[in-house]
Amino acid sequence: MELRDVRRLNGTTITPYRILGATPGTHLGLPSPTTTLVIDLGTGLVLSTRESEPRTFRVSVGGMHLAPVTVHHDGTQVGVFLSLSPGAVRALFGVRPGDVCAQNFELADMAPRLARRLYDELGAVAPDRRGDVCARVIDERLGAAGTPPADPDAQRAWQLLGAARGRLTVSRLVELSGWSARKLTALFTAEYGVGPKQAARLFRFDHARRRLDAGEPIAEIATACGYSDQAHLTREFTAFTGLPPRSLLTARANEFAGAAAP
């Protein structure tokens, strides 16, 4: 479900999930140019990173990150996953995306009432109603945080990078902004927590990863997404996920092996 009809939330998606009977294992939360919000309705969402030990969350916020997050599961995963655009982060939480970049924390630490409503109201309805109930709760929350809008130059640079799927140079962004490279980079990094060059790499990786998931040949993806060659694409996938493209596909295919059909 994409929230095109909810104010200020274009580009934000809600995905209820219910996985039962899988072989216990792990699932990779891959880097993307979004912030994630996960309402776990099972026994808790267990996350770890390259720098941190496993920790259990109930309603978790995961800031935009440049490295994978590992989800540890016992064969059951039940809840609702939201992919939040930068505008949604400001509208819902009253902070900049950069303020939560590369972090995983309980929503209750920042917005306890919203965390409680999401957990209680989603847990009280049938699985097929959770997406609609989540959208209603989110819509009612909009504007409560009262945060000012993003810097317009940083926001415009982000939008241009997104529209180009990362195939836009920093020098071109600087030219379009009218600022110096140093000034634009400072504005951009303060808002998003990463610089324009890192964001461009992240947009490009996200686009390439989606095409890989769709079954396109790796060499064709490299050309279409602006990598210099297949080896360049492979280096970027390894940097962002720890795995080259084919190994990533294999790992993702086996993450919930044996799960019951929905």
Rank of each mutant, 00 (worst) to 15 (best):
F57G: 01
A150L: 10
V69F: 08
L41C: 09
E140I: 07
Q155G: 12
P149E: 02
G62L: 14
D74H: 05
T43L: 10
A102F: 07
R50N: 10
L30V: 02
G62R: 15
F93D: 02
A126H: 14
D132C: 00
D109M: 13
L160E: 14
E53W: 09
T70P: 09
A108V: 00
V46H: 10
R113A: 15
A145H: 07
T147Q: 13
T56Y: 06
L84K: 04
N104T: 12
L122C: 11
G79K: 00
A108L: 03
G123S: 03
R141V: 06
L122N: 08
T43H: 14
V61A: 06
P31K: 07
F93V: 01
T70E: 15
R90E: 12
D132G: 07
V71N: 07
E106A: 08
P24F: 14
V69I: 13
D40E: 06
G98S: 07
R136P: 01
P24E: 12
G79A: 03
G87W: 12
P33L: 02
S85F: 02
E53Y: 10
A150K: 09
A157Q: 12
R50Q: 14
W158Q: 08
L118R: 04
P152I: 00
A115Q: 07
Q159N: 14
L41R: 01
V137S: 04
V59R: 00
G98N: 10
P54V: 02
P127D: 08
S52Q: 15
L66A: 12
H72P: 01
Q77M: 14
H72G: 05
G29D: 11
G123L: 08
L107Q: 06
G62I: 06
A91E: 15
L28A: 11
S85R: 05
H73F: 02
V133R: 15
V71Q: 13
V69G: 04
L47S: 06
Q77T: 08
P127Q: 11
R117Y: 13
R141L: 08
L84I: 03
V61T: 11
Q159R: 15
A126M: 06
G87A: 12
A102M: 12
F81I: 05
G44Q: 05
P97N: 00
V59D: 02
Q103C: 12
R156N: 09
A111W: 02
R141S: 11
S83A: 15
V80Q: 09
Y119K: 15
D74S: 07
G79C: 02
R117P: 05
R58L: 04
S48I: 00
I39M: 12
H73M: 05
R113C: 04
R130E: 09
R141D: 02
A135V: 06
R156A: 14
L41V: 00
R136Q: 14
G63C: 03
P152G: 02
R113F: 08
V69A: 08
G131Y: 09
A91C: 10
W158I: 05
F57C: 04
V46I: 11
Y119P: 02
L114I: 01
E106G: 10
I138E: 04
E53S: 15
D153R: 13
L84N: 06
A145F: 08
G25N: 01
P148Y: 11
D139L: 11
L92D: 08
D151I: 09
A154S: 09
R113W: 06
V100P: 03
G87E: 15
L84T: 01
R55S: 13
A144V: 13
V46S: 13
A126W: 05
T70I: 15
P127W: 10
P127S: 11
E140G: 15
Y119T: 10
V59L: 00
G75M: 12
